[in-house]
Structures are given as C-alpha cells and as structure tokens.
Design a protein around this nucleic acid. Structure first.
Lengths: 339, 339
DNA sequence: CTGTTAGCGCCTTCAA
DNA sequence: TTGAAGGCGCTAACAG
C-alpha cells in the first residue's frame, strides 16, 4: 500500500518519510537538516526545508526521545498548584528552561507528601529531570528518588542528609529579622501561626521564632498550615495566649488571619500586629499592607533551572549559598497597645 | 555483550526486557501485565509484577507513545503564567486530567499572541490535545491550529467563525450587572480600564460597557491591559474625564488602579468607586474589599477537560452554554460624591 | 556530503 | 494463554 502523501495536517501525523519523499532525499538527510547538527549541501537543505514547511512537518517528540534517550522535558512538582507563591518561581524557571529548549511538565501534589513520591516516579517515565518545589516528602523518599533519577533538584529544601543540589533562601535569618522588628516595637508575647510540619522552610522559620525567646520575644506556637483557610482557622486558637502580634508562616496564612481578625473586630495594627512571609504580589495591597519578607522568587526559579541544566550536562554543580531575603516593613505592624 | 541485569535504578533505565528476563517470560507478557489489557495467567502475572517491582521498572512514556500513537499528555497555553486568575482553572483542569491518566504540559505565552501560535505548534509534537486559555491569537491562527491538531479546546474565547469546542462565562451579562450596579448607585460618568484588545473576554466586557450608555451610564474608555502594572499606569489617564467610578477589566487591573489611587490620596469608595472582575482569592482582602464578578474557575477547568476528553474519544462535544457569573458587591463601590 | 541500516522500548497482530 | 516478530518515527553509526 503506497504511503498517502497527504497535504498539511490531515489525519495522522506527517512523518520524516513523507518529507524525504517530497524533497527527493533520504530520511537521514531530512533528520540532519532538521537537527542542523551535520552539514548538508545548501540546495538539498533548502529543498528539505521547503518540503517540511509545505507539509507542516513537526518531528515527533516521542520518536526523538526514544532514539536519543533525551526528552527535553523537566518535571516540576509543587505542593499546591493554586498557591501564587509558586507561580513566580515556576514562571522564572520555565523561561530559563524554554530558552534551553526544554518544556515543563507540572504536577500538583495537593499538599500530600506521599503524592509527591508517586508523582515523581510517574513523571520519571517521561522527563529528563525533576524539580521538587518545597517538597514535604521524607528524607528517605528523597533519597530513593535521587537513586532513581540522574537529575533531581530541590527548591526550598536544604535538609541535611540529602546530597541533592538545592536552592533556597535564608529562612532562619529572615524570620529572625521579623522577630527583631517586633521586639524593637516593644512586643514581648506573640503567637506564631506555623506552617506545614514537613516543610523545611516551615521548620526553619519555626526555629527562628523559638530562638527569638533569647531576646525576650516569646511566642505561642499554633499549628496552621500554608493556605488562606489555614490562617483563618488558626486565629481563634492563637488569640488564646493574648498575643500583641501574630507572626504568620506565609503571606497566604496572613491573609486568612487578617480576614478573621477583621471579623472579630480587631484593628491591625492598632489592636494587634500581623506579619507575613514571601511578599507575594498581593501583600502590598492587603488592608493594611502586609509587613513581610521579600523572597527573590525569580532568582530561585532561574537558579533552579541552572542546577537542572548543569546536572543534564553531567556536571556536579557546586552548592549554592542560601539566598538572602529581606524584611519589608509596611503597615500591618506597630507598637503594641499599652494599657 | 550480555545485557547487564543491574539492580533498581543504577545508570540507564530498566527496560521491559530486563523485567521479562527476571520473570522468565517474554516481553509481550510483561507488556500485557503492565497494561492489564489482555488476560495472563495469575502465576505469571504475579511473577512479572514481582520482577517489575524489584527492578523498579517504569515503562518509557516515549516508547509507549511511539508504539501506540498516544502520549497521554495535554498541552496548556496561558497568556501569563504569573497571573493568579489562571491558577484555579489550571488546578481544576489538572485534577480532572490526572484522574483520566493524563498529565499537563504548561506553556507561557508571555502576553504575546504570536508566541501562542509557535508554542501550540511546538507542543503538538508531544501532546494529544491542546487547551488554549484566553488565547489572543487571530482567528486565522486558531483555524490553522484546528487543522493541525485533532483536539483543540478553547477557554475564554467564544469567537464566531471558529468551530473549536469552547467553555467560557457570560462576560457581557456580568459586566452589564456591574454597570447596572453603578448606575443604581447614581453614577453617570465613569472610566473603563480596558483589557487586552485581542482578548475575547476583553472585547465582550467592553461591549457591555458601551451598551451601558443606553441606560445613561457613560464611560470613557482607557486602554490598560491585564496586569497590576497596567492598571496602575492607566489611572492617571482615566482620571482625565473626571469619572465617579473606575471599572476595571480584571481584579489584577483593579489592584494596580487601587495602588495608584491611594498614592494620589483618593479614597475608595469615598472619592471614587472601583470594580474588578474575576473574584480572584485576593479580591476580598483588598483595601477596600473589591466589588467584582465571581467567575466559576473550577467549573471552567473541569469542563475544559471534559471537552478535551470527549475530543480524545473522537466525539464531537455539544456546544456548552456560557457559564453564569455573578456580581459580588463588597466595599469598593458606593454612591458618587455629590457636590 | 548522502544514503542505508540498525536499533531506541514498547505494543500488537499473528501463530502456536 | 503465551511467544515471536514487525513496526511506531527518529537518530546515529557506517559505508560509499
């Protein structure tokens, strides 16, 4: 049965053979022209390009992947696809990846650590590298993935005991800045709306809060989480210790807390101060504008890709220093009410 | 050279052959067990599963794709990956896709219509379907893509002249509600911070604004865009017509406008009213809380996937009705100042 | 510089 | 129920 040389894009994909036929050359020549890797005589190259364009030829990624062993795709796992915090990272990372000819396969773990492991394994079937953003999985799980894949990069997770390349910010120092800011304003007893227990960033921030006691700033620890809803729900318990300020794990948590404080008729910062963390784009538009910590999301994203890229080149990237984050003082913090 | 039967995950992927060898069966049997499509005797199936687990075998997606012609991956193109409006849509769509065994390849067009076309073509090399979210590309480009791919779905774009399955909300009606709300409050002369000219949603919303003149509500049209920065930048021009209210294309634009209004010392809604559109999660936390239009983002996402799924089943999905969106009155709108 | 050919890993008839 | 074998579309030697 003769191969039907159909016009651009009608039923069934156009293959390299059809282009070769149309241009009167071998498929090898077409392949060479498309991948511009070996030299082909100008006239042949031109004929091939014409034919390819006329037929609307697009090489099959699957076939290329099979033949070369490289998929030019990187898998990205985030705890929650609806959290704006991750988008700036993803956007920056994607831009760098695209520049290097890679695409991003995104997976949503829905705040479930075990889901992260499953997704990672599943993703490995079709990607060349994996980027785990703020992974909550155990160190053991991390090590397993490390063994199953030649290229895994961690974002926001600098746990000891894992040799994976990592990019994160200086969480502890930044949260200490927050505490210091509050202490200087005169606060002594605060409440901390803590993040997810398995999150490394949450652990670091919590450490900082606990350390602040050494400077006379005492915090009641209230488990919250990473979402607006979690912040909202934790406020009532947090108020139990009669704090003069609420320090939140993240901006999202702070937004939730803010909503509940308003409901309760409490003024911020008049009655109580409030801080966030991350400085997402909306932090400054809150009412009142959120005092928070600015994290270099773009830089995290592009650095993460750099790590991936060097791993893909079979290099062993040098450990990256923790990125600095800085306190942004806006309107949600003030001196505690003196009565 | 004998095939090295290496333990789980060391150098080079585990193939179906290694599993077959380990289980003492043919690769056909392994394939059948993995895809649980044909019957295999219980004992053999068990042996194969054991071997696969022991070796950590994961079928290569590329090989499967090549052999079956199905990649189980869908490409999603959004105008801007850092726009929170798209998160909930993406998240919902992803959840549905994952439930059906599909993954999502995400591409960011960076607000560039021509980029959308390029990305679409590129994506088609490795996906089974394409979802264009709020595409700005021309009708011609849309038609080309339609011909090049068997499965393309449109979100937020119901242009006539294109036969692609579409899911969108009732933009015109909703924006008319906004205008009606303002008119009832007593507003007569307002300014509209318009969205991207190529966006169908922007066109519909603009139509509504123009229609409102029939009810005595006159608007000065000011080109803005779809981002916070665009809203911020458009305020000064918008104020030129001395409006009593600023109607914005989207919440993001409203956030930007709000920031500028604050800078100028104008009170909202005391000095001027402000409205958004979309009701992103942060709209209620703005200062003041934004009067806006709630759009069923989750539903858009899951419906979009349903369209894709039926296309993948070679069905011709029935046209979906425009989803209703409803006005949410919060604190940013009030009666115009009477002087 | 160009063509032929042997796989890449898997699925899927076709026989047995 | 099982195995053998031919492709899927492409790349990469290897000849010429």
């Amino acid at each position: 049965m003769p191969r039907a040389s159909s016009p651009a894009g009608r039923k069934g994909r156009v293959t390299i053979h059809q282009v070769a036929d149309a241009a009167g050359v071998s498929i090898a020549t077409v392949s060479r022209v498309m991948s511009r890797t070996e030299s082909v005589s100008p006239e042949l190259a031109e004929r091939v390009r014409q034919a390819a364009a006329a037929l609307g030829y697009q090489p099959s990624a699957a076939a290329q992947g099979l033949a070369t062993g490289v998929n030019r795709t990187v898998g990205v796992i985030v705890p929650n696809l609806a959290n704006p915090y991750f988008y700036d990272i993803i956007k920056a990372m994607n831009a760098s990846a695209v520049a290097d000819g890679y695409r991003m396969l995104i997976a949503d773990a829905n705040e479930d650590p075990s889901e992260e492991v499953t997704l990672g394994r599943e993703l490995l079937r079709q990607v060349d590298a994996l980027v785990l953003v703020s992974p909550r999985m155990s160190v053991e799980a991390l090590r397993e993935l490390e063994h199953e894949s030649p290229a895994v990069v961690l974002v926001n997770r600098a746990s000891i005991g894992v040799g994976l390349p990592t990019i994160s910010i200086e969480n502890l120092g930044a949260m200490l800045e927050v505490a210091g800011h509050l202490a200087k304003l005169g606060h002594r007893g605060i409440a901390y709306l803590a993040g997810p227990a398995q999150s490394w960033q949450a652990q670091e921030r919590l450490r900082a809060i606990n350390q602040a006691a050494a400077f006379g700033l005492h915090a009641a620890i209230v488990p919250a989480g990473a979402t607006i809803a979690a912040g909202y729900a934790a406020v009532d318990a947090a108020l139990g210790s009669d704090p003069t300020a609420l320090v939140c794990f993240s901006d999202l948590v702070a937004f939730g807390a803010l909503a509940r404080l308003h409901e309760l008729g409490l003024q911020v910062p008049g009655d109580i101060s409030l801080t966030g963390f991350d400085d997402i784009a909306f932090a400054r538009y809150a009412k009142p504008a959120l005092t928070t910590v600015a994290t270099p999301l773009q830089e995290i994203g592009s650095k993460a890709w750099q790590l991936v890229a060097s791993l893909l080149r079979h290099e062993r990237p040098a450990p990256l220093p923790l990125l600095p984050a800085r306190l942004i003082i806006r309107e949600s913090t003030g001196a505690p009410r003196t009565e």
